[in-house]
Amino acid sequence: MTEALDLLGLNYLLTPQSRIYWLYLLSSALIAAVFLHVRPQYRIGVSRAIWLHPSAKLDYMYFVLISLIKAALIAPLMLSASDVALWVNGALGYREPLHLGHTLIVALYTLSLFVVSDFTRYWLHRWLHSVPFLWRLHRVHHSAEVLNPLTFYRVHPIENILFGLRYALSAGVVTGVFITLFGARIGVAEFLGANALVALFNLAGANLRHSHLPLRFGDTLEHWFISPYMHQLHHAIGTTYTNYGGALSVWDRLFGTLHVSPVRPLEFGANVRHDTLAALFFEPFTLEKKDEQNPIIA
């Protein structure tokens, strides 16, 4: 039974580590409700025209299929963070653990996992835009003409593998270093059963990143965190080369890709159309006439 749910991707709703865990969806819905109450002009953003747009319908179908592929093909073969951690720990060798208070160790480890993972996420995402072949894969995500929470999962399986490797390496290296420093006394601060910082990020309306509600955090917070509207700017034609960040906007700021702006109407999409499931999977491998590169960068 659970396996059947796994295959349909419905287990994501019950997994606190996943973006569409029911509580995160609920928090985003509540934030959206308040937002729309204050800014009723954006109600069009949650209309049937958006939910039932062909691009959205394609997202829903793709979600089921890609969940199946991930559960059946990618997850079983994926390099695990603990294997990487063991390797790193072995390479660093044994030393007597440092004596720090447990709360401090947990705080440091939780924060390091979050920050390092967010950093590697930024760079992988940036390369997905700047390396021509990777951009063809990542265009699968950007060809969405309307955005909804499931657009998050509209990602080519090869990109999934890259993100999975990135996670295993980041979490594995951090964990290996922390095991070397503190041994078995490491632990993650959890909230709702996930890394507390990941949970807070998701609760802060992460599902509105892929939506038509231009929720901003305000200039001060956007100096540090990527707001839903900032990710929408990343999906918008003309500003795709900005705001690669996941949760933190620090990387965009440091590496010159930050784009903070007042809310304006945006048009989403990429320089390619994907109208079918087959196109999403196979178009990246087909020969193209000329625009193999991101025309915005080229």
């Binding site: 990618i74 963070a81 603990s82 995500h141 998050f152 999934n160």
Partner: peptide, 9 residues
């Protein structure tokens, strides 16, 4: 960490 496979985009 090992229980999550964060392979999303």
């Amino acid at each position: 960490t090992q229980k999550i496979i964060e392979a999303d985009g």
